[in-house]
Structures are given as C-alpha cells and as structure tokens.
Amino acid sequence: MQPVIRVGEQSTGGMFEPNADWTMEARQNILTALKAKQVQLGNEIIPYDEGVAGDGGIAVQYEKLFGSLASSVVEYQFFAGNRLPTKKRKNTFDWGLGPGIKSIPKLEGADYALFIWTMDQYGSTGRKLLQAAGFLASAFGVPVGVTSGVHKGYAGLVDLKTGDLVWLNADLAMGGDVRAPDGAEKRVQQLLEGFPGRRAEGQSVSAPK
C-alpha cells in the first residue's frame, strides 16, 4: 500500500507543523528504498497505484486506519501494564483491519497487504533551545522534561483473506533522516527488520510466525 509519510517541524510548544517539501522528499526516498529492499526479501511486491485503481478513496482510509491500529497495538498490547482485558490471554495477538479490506478491487489476487506509516518531527530552533534550557535546569535539580524531535514508524502485514494483522514492527524512536536517500534507506531497513519472506539468494530471512 502507499506509505503514509508525515514530515514536518516540531514547534517550540511541541506542535507538529507539516512541511510539504520535506514530505515529498521523504516519500520519494522511502519508495526508492522499498523498491531496492524487495530484492532482498525474496517476495513479489507490487506497489499499489491508487490513481490507476480508481478505488483510492477507500484505500487511503485503510492506510490511515493502519496507523491508528498500529498505535493501539503498541499502547495496549506491547506494554503489559496497559494491556486490554481481551488481550491478556497468553500468546494472543488478535488485531486487524477487518475483512472488508479484501473488497478493494485492485487487491484481488494478492495474499497480503504491506502497510507503512512514519512520522518525523524535526525540532525547531526554539524547541532545541527549550530543550537546552531544560538540561540546564535539571543540572540545578529542577526536573524539566523537554524532548526535541519525534521519529516513529510502523510496518505491518495484513492477511487479505481475513483482514488480520499477522506481523508488526513498531519503533517510537527510529533513526535515519528520511529527507536524505541514505537516511531513508536506514529507515526502511529498520521498518522491515524481521519481515517474513522467502529466502533470496545470499540472504537469510525470518519465517512467518
């Protein structure tokens, strides 16, 4: 699926301010890195073209829904203290986008849908100064927790027959400046770490669980 990529600046007050130029650069870089990565995965990966498909509206909804789903998994499944009652059963991982996703015409014949969602907020000068002031205050025993920058991403594989989320990789402190090609390559490498796939020549990949 088309990756959901949000890039912008973190204001002094911590608000996200989107930057269209940075987002366009990041999208181009990440798509290029994904194309190169598919050779290593040993799978046949077909980019979803919303414009050609004619069902872009519903596809975009699912792409955005994945971001909310992944965030919920991180919050309510990965951390035991916040785990929902229905997710407390041992070895239970029961999350998904619902079976309706298989009704998207362009996905007919595909086995799985790969979703990617990333957000990068680069700290503004004001935010960095505020963070520096926080460090200075803490040196004098005044607790001030100010961070500069947000870099998080999710990659997930959805079974198109059931809508179930069968694999998820999430990181709330990702590396790689997605505005640069080498940074985007690093980001994609992190997002697809442990991705289930066939063994490609000269590569060792993990098997589906």
Rank of each mutant, 00 (worst) to 15 (best):
A110K: 13
Q2V: 11
N169K: 13
A36C: 13
A137W: 01
M174K: 03
F195Q: 00
P105K: 08
S72L: 11
A137K: 04
G56M: 07
F135H: 14
W95Q: 03
F78I: 05
I46G: 06
E75N: 10
S204W: 08
Q131F: 05
W117L: 00
G123P: 00
V146L: 03
E108F: 10
S148D: 07
E201S: 13
N29S: 12
F78M: 14
L157D: 04
Q203F: 08
E9N: 14
Q190I: 02
G67K: 11
Q28I: 12
G54D: 00
G56A: 07
D164H: 11
S72M: 12
G51Y: 10
T118M: 04
A26F: 13
L41A: 09
Y112N: 07
G145K: 15
L69V: 06
S138G: 10
Q2F: 07
A36Y: 13
D55W: 06
M15W: 12
V39N: 10
V146T: 03
W117P: 05
I30C: 03
K88V: 06
R179I: 07
L160N: 01
D94R: 09
L192V: 03
A20W: 11
P3T: 06
I116Q: 01
R27E: 15
A180W: 10
Y76S: 08
A155C: 09
A207R: 15
A133P: 00
S206L: 11
F93Q: 07
W22K: 15
P18S: 02
L157E: 05
G202I: 01
K90G: 10
F115T: 01
K64D: 10
F195G: 00
G100L: 05
R89C: 09
L129F: 09
L157H: 08
F115V: 02
A59E: 04
T147C: 01
G153A: 02
G13V: 11
R127I: 01
S103M: 05
S204Y: 07
Y154R: 09
G156P: 05
A80K: 14
L192M: 04
G183M: 01
P47C: 06
